[in-house]
Design a protein around this nucleic acid. Structure first.
Lengths: 193, 193
DNA sequence: CGAAAATTTGACATGACTCAACTGGAGTGG
DNA sequence: CCACTCCAGTTGAGTCATGTCAAATTTTCG
Protein backbone atom coordinates (compact mmCIF):
# COMPACT_ATOMS: atom_id res chain seq x y z
CA UNK A 1 0.00 0.00 0.00
CA UNK A 2 1.30 3.43 -0.95
CA UNK A 3 0.23 6.06 1.53
CA UNK A 4 2.72 8.71 0.42
CA UNK A 5 0.35 10.78 -1.72
CA UNK A 6 -1.84 11.35 1.30
CA UNK A 7 1.10 12.35 3.48
CA UNK A 8 2.30 14.76 0.81
CA UNK A 9 -1.19 16.12 0.59
CA UNK A 10 -1.23 16.90 4.29
CA UNK A 11 2.16 18.56 3.94
CA UNK A 12 0.46 21.36 2.07
CA UNK A 13 -1.29 22.13 5.35
CA UNK A 14 0.43 21.43 8.68
CA UNK A 15 2.92 18.63 7.92
CA UNK A 16 2.51 15.44 9.93
CA UNK A 17 5.12 14.13 12.36
CA UNK A 18 6.06 10.47 12.81
CA UNK A 19 3.46 9.66 15.43
CA UNK A 20 0.72 11.12 13.27
CA UNK A 21 1.91 9.26 10.21
CA UNK A 22 2.03 6.00 12.12
CA UNK A 23 -1.47 6.51 13.42
CA UNK A 24 -2.65 7.36 9.93
CA UNK A 25 -1.05 4.28 8.40
CA UNK A 26 -2.91 2.05 10.83
CA UNK A 27 -6.32 3.17 9.66
CA UNK A 28 -5.86 3.71 5.93
CA UNK A 29 -6.81 1.08 3.38
CA UNK A 30 -6.13 1.14 -0.32
CA UNK A 31 -8.69 0.29 -2.96
CA UNK A 32 -8.47 -0.12 -6.72
CA UNK A 33 -11.48 0.53 -8.87
CA UNK A 34 -12.32 -0.04 -12.51
CA UNK A 35 -14.46 2.26 -14.60
CA UNK A 36 -18.11 2.31 -13.46
CA UNK A 37 -17.36 0.83 -10.06
CA UNK A 38 -18.91 2.53 -7.08
CA UNK A 39 -17.57 3.88 -3.81
CA UNK A 40 -21.10 4.70 -2.71
CA UNK A 41 -24.52 3.89 -4.08
CA UNK A 42 -27.94 5.38 -3.40
CA UNK A 43 -29.31 4.17 -0.06
CA UNK A 44 -25.93 3.05 1.24
CA UNK A 45 -24.79 4.73 4.40
CA UNK A 46 -21.53 6.50 3.72
CA UNK A 47 -18.98 5.04 6.12
CA UNK A 48 -15.66 6.10 4.64
CA UNK A 49 -13.70 9.23 4.01
CA UNK A 50 -12.13 8.66 0.61
CA UNK A 51 -8.99 10.29 -0.73
CA UNK A 52 -8.35 9.98 -4.46
CA UNK A 53 -4.76 9.00 -5.27
CA UNK A 54 -5.28 8.62 -9.00
CA UNK A 55 -8.19 8.47 -11.37
CA UNK A 56 -11.41 10.41 -11.44
CA UNK A 57 -14.83 10.17 -9.82
CA UNK A 58 -18.23 11.74 -10.15
CA UNK A 59 -20.62 12.24 -7.25
CA UNK A 60 -24.20 12.66 -8.40
CA UNK A 61 -27.85 12.29 -7.59
CA UNK A 62 -30.49 10.69 -9.77
CA UNK A 63 -33.81 12.52 -10.02
CA UNK A 64 -37.30 11.15 -10.60
CA UNK A 65 -36.75 11.24 -14.37
CA UNK A 66 -33.58 9.18 -13.99
CA UNK A 67 -31.40 12.14 -14.96
CA UNK A 68 -27.99 12.45 -13.29
CA UNK A 69 -26.97 15.68 -11.60
CA UNK A 70 -23.28 15.87 -10.85
CA UNK A 71 -22.41 17.62 -7.61
CA UNK A 72 -18.69 17.11 -7.69
CA UNK A 73 -15.89 15.68 -9.75
CA UNK A 74 -13.04 14.33 -7.64
CA UNK A 75 -9.59 13.75 -9.08
CA UNK A 76 -6.08 13.34 -7.66
CA UNK A 77 -5.63 14.81 -4.17
CA UNK A 78 -9.27 15.40 -3.48
CA UNK A 79 -11.65 13.98 -0.91
CA UNK A 80 -14.97 12.58 -1.95
CA UNK A 81 -17.75 11.46 0.39
CA UNK A 82 -21.33 12.28 1.23
CA UNK A 83 -20.98 14.28 4.43
CA UNK A 84 -24.74 14.37 4.90
CA UNK A 85 -24.94 10.61 5.05
CA UNK A 86 -21.73 10.31 7.07
CA UNK A 87 -22.74 12.79 9.73
CA UNK A 88 -26.32 11.82 10.22
CA UNK A 89 -25.85 8.11 9.60
CA UNK A 90 -28.58 8.22 7.03
CA UNK A 91 -28.93 6.39 3.70
CA UNK A 92 -27.34 8.51 1.02
CA UNK A 93 -29.27 9.89 -1.93
CA UNK A 94 -26.04 10.14 -3.91
CA UNK A 95 -23.74 7.88 -5.90
CA UNK A 96 -19.98 8.07 -6.20
CA UNK A 97 -18.69 6.30 -9.28
CA UNK A 98 -15.30 5.90 -10.94
CA UNK A 99 -15.05 7.53 -14.38
CA UNK A 100 -11.54 6.17 -14.86
CA UNK A 101 -9.61 3.27 -13.36
CA UNK A 102 -8.75 4.72 -9.98
CA UNK A 103 -6.83 4.21 -6.76
CA UNK A 104 -8.15 5.57 -3.48
CA UNK A 105 -7.20 5.57 0.18
CA UNK A 106 -10.05 5.15 2.61
CA UNK A 107 -10.48 5.82 6.31
CA UNK A 108 -13.43 4.49 8.28
CA UNK A 109 -15.60 7.12 9.83
CA UNK A 110 -14.90 6.00 13.39
CA UNK A 111 -11.16 5.81 12.75
CA UNK A 112 -11.00 9.31 11.36
CA UNK A 113 -12.93 10.61 14.33
CA UNK A 114 -10.38 8.99 16.60
CA UNK A 115 -7.57 10.64 14.68
CA UNK A 116 -9.31 13.96 14.94
CA UNK A 117 -9.69 13.84 18.68
CA UNK A 118 -6.26 12.34 19.33
CA UNK A 119 -4.18 14.69 17.21
CA UNK A 120 -5.09 18.34 17.08
CA UNK A 121 -3.28 18.63 13.80
CA UNK A 122 -5.83 16.51 11.99
CA UNK A 123 -8.58 18.58 13.47
CA UNK A 124 -6.84 21.69 12.22
CA UNK A 125 -6.10 20.34 8.78
CA UNK A 126 -9.63 19.14 8.24
CA UNK A 127 -11.05 22.43 9.40
CA UNK A 128 -9.00 24.18 6.76
CA UNK A 129 -9.81 21.57 4.13
CA UNK A 130 -13.52 22.00 4.76
CA UNK A 131 -13.22 25.74 4.61
CA UNK A 132 -11.58 25.41 1.23
CA UNK A 133 -14.22 23.04 -0.05
CA UNK A 134 -16.83 25.46 1.18
CA UNK A 135 -15.24 28.33 -0.74
CA UNK A 136 -15.09 26.32 -3.94
CA UNK A 137 -18.73 25.41 -3.65
CA UNK A 138 -19.68 28.99 -2.89
CA UNK A 139 -17.86 30.13 -6.00
CA UNK A 140 -19.57 27.52 -8.10
CA UNK A 141 -22.98 28.43 -6.79
CA UNK A 142 -22.38 32.11 -7.39
CA UNK A 143 -21.21 31.38 -10.92
CA UNK A 144 -24.27 29.25 -11.47
CA UNK A 145 -26.94 31.69 -10.36
CA UNK A 146 -25.17 34.70 -11.88
CA UNK A 147 -24.57 33.62 -15.46
CA UNK A 148 -26.10 31.78 -18.38
CA UNK A 149 -25.12 28.36 -19.62
CA UNK A 150 -22.53 29.52 -22.16
CA UNK A 151 -20.61 31.59 -19.64
CA UNK A 152 -20.78 28.75 -17.11
CA UNK A 153 -19.37 26.35 -19.67
CA UNK A 154 -16.45 28.59 -20.61
CA UNK A 155 -15.75 29.20 -16.94
CA UNK A 156 -15.73 25.46 -16.30
CA UNK A 157 -13.25 24.87 -19.11
CA UNK A 158 -10.66 27.25 -17.82
CA UNK A 159 -11.20 26.41 -14.19
CA UNK A 160 -10.82 22.66 -14.71
CA UNK A 161 -8.74 22.06 -17.83
CA UNK A 162 -7.31 18.89 -16.29
CA UNK A 163 -10.81 17.48 -15.88
CA UNK A 164 -12.60 18.82 -18.91
CA UNK A 165 -10.42 16.98 -21.41
CA UNK A 166 -10.78 13.67 -19.62
CA UNK A 167 -14.55 13.39 -19.64
CA UNK A 168 -17.33 13.32 -22.23
CA UNK A 169 -19.37 16.48 -22.70
CA UNK A 170 -22.41 14.69 -21.40
CA UNK A 171 -20.91 14.81 -17.94
CA UNK A 172 -20.00 18.46 -18.21
CA UNK A 173 -23.60 19.19 -19.17
CA UNK A 174 -24.83 17.29 -16.15
CA UNK A 175 -22.43 19.23 -13.92
CA UNK A 176 -23.59 22.55 -15.33
CA UNK A 177 -27.25 21.63 -15.01
CA UNK A 178 -28.09 21.67 -18.73
CA UNK A 179 -28.90 19.01 -21.33
CA UNK A 180 -26.18 17.47 -23.51
CA UNK A 181 -27.98 18.66 -26.65
CA UNK A 182 -27.99 22.22 -25.48
CA UNK A 183 -24.32 22.05 -24.53
CA UNK A 184 -23.60 20.80 -28.02
CA UNK A 185 -25.35 23.85 -29.47
CA UNK A 186 -23.38 26.14 -27.20
CA UNK A 187 -20.16 24.51 -28.39
CA UNK A 188 -21.31 25.06 -31.96
CA UNK A 189 -21.87 28.76 -31.25
CA UNK A 190 -18.49 29.17 -29.67
CA UNK A 191 -16.49 27.62 -32.50
CA UNK A 192 -18.51 29.54 -35.07
CA UNK A 193 -17.17 32.75 -33.53
CA UNK B 1 -22.10 43.64 25.74
CA UNK B 2 -24.11 40.44 25.71
CA UNK B 3 -22.04 37.49 24.65
CA UNK B 4 -24.47 34.83 25.90
CA UNK B 5 -26.05 33.97 22.55
CA UNK B 6 -22.67 33.01 21.19
CA UNK B 7 -21.87 30.84 24.20
CA UNK B 8 -25.23 29.12 23.91
CA UNK B 9 -24.55 28.61 20.25
CA UNK B 10 -21.30 26.82 21.01
CA UNK B 11 -23.12 24.70 23.57
CA UNK B 12 -24.86 22.95 20.69
CA UNK B 13 -21.41 21.62 19.77
CA UNK B 14 -18.80 20.98 22.46
CA UNK B 15 -19.75 23.32 25.33
CA UNK B 16 -17.09 25.82 26.40
CA UNK B 17 -15.46 25.79 29.83
CA UNK B 18 -14.62 28.90 31.86
CA UNK B 19 -11.15 29.43 30.43
CA UNK B 20 -12.51 29.23 26.91
CA UNK B 21 -15.33 31.63 27.68
CA UNK B 22 -12.93 34.11 29.26
CA UNK B 23 -10.66 33.96 26.24
CA UNK B 24 -13.63 34.40 23.95
CA UNK B 25 -14.92 37.41 25.88
CA UNK B 26 -11.61 39.16 25.47
CA UNK B 27 -11.75 39.15 21.69
CA UNK B 28 -15.44 39.62 20.93
CA UNK B 29 -16.89 43.00 20.12
CA UNK B 30 -20.52 43.89 19.70
CA UNK B 31 -21.88 45.95 16.86
CA UNK B 32 -25.32 47.39 16.15
CA UNK B 33 -26.42 47.99 12.60
CA UNK B 34 -29.36 49.74 11.01
CA UNK B 35 -31.02 48.63 7.81
CA UNK B 36 -28.76 48.96 4.77
CA UNK B 37 -25.59 49.24 6.79
CA UNK B 38 -22.69 47.10 5.70
CA UNK B 39 -20.42 44.63 7.45
CA UNK B 40 -18.39 44.25 4.28
CA UNK B 41 -18.32 46.08 0.99
CA UNK B 42 -16.86 45.19 -2.39
CA UNK B 43 -13.09 45.62 -2.39
CA UNK B 44 -12.80 45.62 1.38
CA UNK B 45 -10.65 42.93 2.83
CA UNK B 46 -12.74 40.80 5.15
CA UNK B 47 -11.11 40.96 8.57
CA UNK B 48 -13.81 39.74 10.91
CA UNK B 49 -15.70 36.60 11.64
CA UNK B 50 -19.23 37.79 12.32
CA UNK B 51 -21.87 36.03 14.38
CA UNK B 52 -25.44 37.26 14.03
CA UNK B 53 -27.20 37.70 17.38
CA UNK B 54 -30.36 39.23 16.01
CA UNK B 55 -31.53 40.65 12.71
CA UNK B 56 -30.90 39.48 9.18
CA UNK B 57 -28.20 39.93 6.55
CA UNK B 58 -27.69 39.23 2.91
CA UNK B 59 -24.34 38.41 1.36
CA UNK B 60 -24.27 39.06 -2.37
CA UNK B 61 -22.21 39.91 -5.40
CA UNK B 62 -22.98 42.57 -7.97
CA UNK B 63 -22.51 41.61 -11.61
CA UNK B 64 -21.57 43.77 -14.57
CA UNK B 65 -25.24 44.68 -15.12
CA UNK B 66 -25.50 45.82 -11.53
CA UNK B 67 -27.75 42.92 -10.62
CA UNK B 68 -27.44 41.45 -7.12
CA UNK B 69 -26.92 37.73 -6.64
CA UNK B 70 -27.51 36.58 -3.10
CA UNK B 71 -25.19 33.84 -1.90
CA UNK B 72 -26.42 33.59 1.64
CA UNK B 73 -28.95 34.96 4.05
CA UNK B 74 -27.69 35.04 7.62
CA UNK B 75 -30.06 35.31 10.55
CA UNK B 76 -29.86 34.59 14.28
CA UNK B 77 -27.13 32.12 15.25
CA UNK B 78 -25.38 32.10 11.92
CA UNK B 79 -21.92 33.16 10.84
CA UNK B 80 -21.44 35.43 7.90
CA UNK B 81 -18.12 36.35 6.31
CA UNK B 82 -16.32 36.08 2.99
CA UNK B 83 -13.93 33.21 3.63
CA UNK B 84 -12.24 33.75 0.28
CA UNK B 85 -11.24 37.25 1.22
CA UNK B 86 -10.42 36.31 4.80
CA UNK B 87 -8.16 33.42 3.90
CA UNK B 88 -6.29 34.91 1.01
CA UNK B 89 -6.22 38.45 2.33
CA UNK B 90 -7.68 39.65 -0.93
CA UNK B 91 -10.23 42.38 -1.63
CA UNK B 92 -13.67 40.86 -1.51
CA UNK B 93 -16.01 40.81 -4.48
CA UNK B 94 -18.98 40.50 -2.13
CA UNK B 95 -21.11 42.72 0.08
CA UNK B 96 -22.69 41.87 3.40
CA UNK B 97 -25.58 44.16 4.25
CA UNK B 98 -28.15 44.34 7.01
CA UNK B 99 -31.73 43.77 5.84
CA UNK B 100 -33.08 44.48 9.32
CA UNK B 101 -31.74 46.36 12.32
CA UNK B 102 -29.24 43.87 13.64
CA UNK B 103 -26.83 43.02 16.43
CA UNK B 104 -23.68 41.06 15.72
CA UNK B 105 -20.64 39.81 17.60
CA UNK B 106 -17.36 40.07 15.77
CA UNK B 107 -13.97 38.46 16.20
CA UNK B 108 -10.90 39.74 14.40
CA UNK B 109 -9.28 37.25 12.09
CA UNK B 110 -6.02 37.14 14.03
CA UNK B 111 -7.85 36.76 17.33
CA UNK B 112 -9.91 33.86 16.12
CA UNK B 113 -6.80 32.16 14.81
CA UNK B 114 -5.24 32.51 18.23
CA UNK B 115 -8.31 30.97 19.81
CA UNK B 116 -8.20 28.11 17.33
CA UNK B 117 -4.60 27.24 18.05
CA UNK B 118 -4.87 27.76 21.80
CA UNK B 119 -8.01 25.73 22.46
CA UNK B 120 -8.57 22.56 20.55
CA UNK B 121 -12.26 22.85 21.24
CA UNK B 122 -12.61 25.89 19.01
CA UNK B 123 -10.76 24.08 16.29
CA UNK B 124 -13.15 21.17 16.66
CA UNK B 125 -16.27 23.27 16.78
CA UNK B 126 -15.33 25.27 13.74
CA UNK B 127 -14.47 22.14 11.82
CA UNK B 128 -17.95 20.83 12.47
CA UNK B 129 -19.54 24.20 11.75
CA UNK B 130 -17.81 24.37 8.41
CA UNK B 131 -18.82 20.85 7.56
CA UNK B 132 -22.42 21.79 8.25
CA UNK B 133 -22.20 24.92 6.14
CA UNK B 134 -20.70 22.83 3.39
CA UNK B 135 -23.58 20.36 3.50
CA UNK B 136 -26.16 23.13 3.35
CA UNK B 137 -24.48 24.63 0.34
CA UNK B 138 -24.21 21.26 -1.35
CA UNK B 139 -27.93 20.71 -0.85
CA UNK B 140 -28.73 24.10 -2.24
CA UNK B 141 -26.58 23.56 -5.30
CA UNK B 142 -28.11 20.17 -5.95
CA UNK B 143 -31.59 21.61 -5.61
CA UNK B 144 -30.65 24.41 -7.96
CA UNK B 145 -29.25 22.36 -10.81
CA UNK B 146 -31.86 19.61 -10.46
CA UNK B 147 -35.12 21.53 -10.55
CA UNK B 148 -36.94 24.39 -12.20
CA UNK B 149 -37.65 27.79 -10.71
CA UNK B 150 -41.09 26.97 -9.33
CA UNK B 151 -39.89 23.90 -7.46
CA UNK B 152 -36.89 25.83 -6.13
CA UNK B 153 -39.18 28.56 -4.86
CA UNK B 154 -41.51 26.18 -3.06
CA UNK B 155 -38.53 24.39 -1.59
CA UNK B 156 -37.12 27.69 -0.36
CA UNK B 157 -40.40 28.58 1.32
CA UNK B 158 -40.61 25.48 3.39
CA UNK B 159 -36.91 25.28 4.11
CA UNK B 160 -36.70 28.86 5.38
CA UNK B 161 -40.14 29.92 6.60
CA UNK B 162 -38.53 32.16 9.22
CA UNK B 163 -36.67 34.05 6.52
CA UNK B 164 -39.14 34.05 3.66
CA UNK B 165 -41.76 36.06 5.48
CA UNK B 166 -39.29 38.71 6.59
CA UNK B 167 -37.96 39.72 3.20
CA UNK B 168 -39.34 41.10 -0.07
CA UNK B 169 -39.78 38.70 -2.96
CA UNK B 170 -37.16 40.57 -4.91
CA UNK B 171 -34.54 39.15 -2.60
CA UNK B 172 -35.89 35.63 -2.86
CA UNK B 173 -35.70 35.93 -6.64
CA UNK B 174 -32.12 37.07 -6.41
CA UNK B 175 -31.31 34.13 -4.13
CA UNK B 176 -32.93 31.66 -6.51
CA UNK B 177 -31.21 33.15 -9.54
CA UNK B 178 -34.35 34.36 -11.34
CA UNK B 179 -35.86 37.78 -12.06
CA UNK B 180 -38.44 39.35 -9.72
CA UNK B 181 -40.94 39.54 -12.57
CA UNK B 182 -40.68 35.86 -13.25
CA UNK B 183 -41.01 35.03 -9.56
CA UNK B 184 -44.17 37.10 -9.50
CA UNK B 185 -45.57 35.02 -12.35
CA UNK B 186 -44.67 31.83 -10.53
CA UNK B 187 -46.49 33.08 -7.45
CA UNK B 188 -49.48 33.87 -9.64
CA UNK B 189 -49.49 30.32 -10.99
CA UNK B 190 -49.26 28.80 -7.55
CA UNK B 191 -52.18 30.72 -6.03
CA UNK B 192 -54.27 30.09 -9.12
CA UNK B 193 -54.04 26.37 -8.37
C1' DC C 1 -49.98 62.23 3.46
C1' DG C 2 -46.32 61.61 -0.05
C1' DA C 3 -42.20 59.45 -2.03
C1' DA C 4 -39.87 55.38 -2.85
C1' DA C 5 -39.85 50.60 -3.30
C1' DA C 6 -42.16 46.23 -4.25
C1' DT C 7 -45.35 43.74 -6.91
C1' DT C 8 -48.11 42.59 -10.73
C1' DT C 9 -49.28 42.33 -15.60
C1' DG C 10 -48.73 41.94 -20.61
C1' DA C 11 -46.32 41.73 -25.03
C1' DC C 12 -42.46 40.17 -26.91
C1' DA C 13 -37.63 38.14 -27.25
C1' DT C 14 -34.29 34.81 -26.01
C1' DG C 15 -32.77 30.71 -23.47
C1' DA C 16 -33.14 26.06 -22.75
C1' DC C 17 -35.53 21.55 -23.22
C1' DT C 18 -37.62 17.54 -25.87
C1' DC C 19 -37.69 14.32 -29.26
C1' DA C 20 -36.16 12.17 -33.17
C1' DA C 21 -32.94 11.47 -36.69
C1' DC C 22 -28.33 11.35 -38.24
C1' DT C 23 -23.07 11.14 -37.99
C1' DG C 24 -18.83 9.36 -36.72
C1' DG C 25 -15.56 7.03 -33.85
C1' DA C 26 -14.21 3.07 -30.61
C1' DG C 27 -14.53 -1.38 -29.47
C1' DT C 28 -15.75 -6.36 -30.47
C1' DG C 29 -16.30 -10.66 -32.58
C1' DG C 30 -16.04 -13.14 -36.73
C1' DC D 1 -9.84 -6.65 -42.18
C1' DC D 2 -14.79 -6.23 -42.21
C1' DA D 3 -19.42 -5.89 -40.26
C1' DC D 4 -21.61 -4.76 -36.32
C1' DT D 5 -22.97 -2.40 -32.27
C1' DC D 6 -22.73 1.12 -28.96
C1' DC D 7 -22.12 5.53 -27.39
C1' DA D 8 -21.02 10.40 -27.78
C1' DG D 9 -21.92 14.20 -30.33
C1' DT D 10 -24.55 16.98 -33.62
C1' DT D 11 -28.60 19.03 -35.90
C1' DG D 12 -33.29 20.75 -36.58
C1' DA D 13 -38.16 21.61 -35.53
C1' DG D 14 -41.25 22.57 -32.23
C1' DT D 15 -42.30 23.77 -27.36
C1' DC D 16 -41.88 25.42 -22.83
C1' DA D 17 -39.22 28.20 -19.41
C1' DT D 18 -37.42 32.39 -18.33
C1' DG D 19 -35.83 37.12 -19.37
C1' DT D 20 -36.65 42.09 -20.89
C1' DC D 21 -38.94 46.20 -20.90
C1' DA D 22 -42.53 49.27 -19.89
C1' DA D 23 -46.64 50.54 -17.46
C1' DA D 24 -50.04 50.22 -13.85
C1' DT D 25 -50.93 49.17 -9.04
C1' DT D 26 -50.05 48.32 -4.33
C1' DT D 27 -47.34 48.48 -0.22
C1' DT D 28 -44.06 50.37 2.87
C1' DC D 29 -41.99 53.79 5.50
C1' DG D 30 -40.54 58.18 6.67
Amino acid sequence: MNIKPLIQYFNRYLPLNKAEITALEKVVTEKHLKRKQYILQTNDICNYYTFVVSGLFKMYSIDKNCAEHIIQFACENEWVEDLNSLHKNKPSCLCIEAIEPSVVLQIKKADLHTLLSTFIKFERNFRVIHEEKFMELENRLLQNISFGAEENYIHFLDQFPQISNRIPNTLIASYLGITPEFLSKIRGNITRK
